[in-house]
Design a protein around this nucleic acid. Structure first.
Lengths: 103, 103
DNA sequence: GACATATTTGCACAACTATGCAAATATAAG
DNA sequence: CTTATATTTGCATAGTTGTGCAAATATGTC
């Protein structure tokens, strides 16, 4: 993920830009241990298969990581990477241009 | 925009989660003065009407502000608000839970 | 093996979205 | 008023997306 690439950044934010997916992220955010899909189901009122698909989208964009744990699969937020990307964008936006008047 | 609401946050990121719209944001990011739509057209290879619509979406989510300037309309990034929202999300995600073991 | 639980996949479908083009509108200049 | 430039809107369309349900798969338990 290159924060300087609008395409890359858009792909990441697109994954986050859906209400149920964002709810999953918030749920994982508050959890201090990896959660399985069944547990995550509680935060958004949709079928388990839908949750599975949303988690897949989040995993593909590196938002979450998953691990098989017996017959369950646990998901955890990829906090570091996510925070890094969001801050990079914020920094980019905040940086006002100081070149006015010059050349 | 309430950063604690996954719905609100998703709506904002959805607006940003499209390649051409993100390109417009990056373009405005580098600009030190408000730009009109014609000028912004150059950064994404689509019809002017499409740019107009994308800018409308961004304006509706408060990402940009616009102002009529004669027959042109100029757009500027709403840097403060945008940075505030992105940082709020990053902070929320970064905050790992320190309650493990306690209770 | 049979059964139970968790997750994924195939399928269908409705809703939404990005797009281009042409027409409409807004505003300025002549 | 006519013309030129900038932006928006109406319409059609192709593609994408979120969803539920049922079936398939994976894994653990008996």
């Amino acid at each position: 993920m290159d924060p300087d690439s609008p395409q890359d950044m858009a792909a990441l934010l697109k994954a986050l830009g859906e209400a149920n997916r964002m709810s999953l992220v918030y749920e994982l955010c508050d959890a201090n241990t990896p959660q399985n899909a069944m547990c995550l189901c509680s935060c958004c009122d949709v079928d388990a298969s839908v949750v599975s698909r949303h988690l897949k989208v989040l995993a593909q964009e590196g938002v979450v990581t998953s691990e098989r744990k017996g017959r369950e699969k646990t998901y955890a937020l990829n906090r570091q990477e996510l925070v890094r990307s969001l801050r990079a964008l914020a920094d980019k936006i905040e940086r006002t241009c100081h070149d006015e008047g010059r050349m």
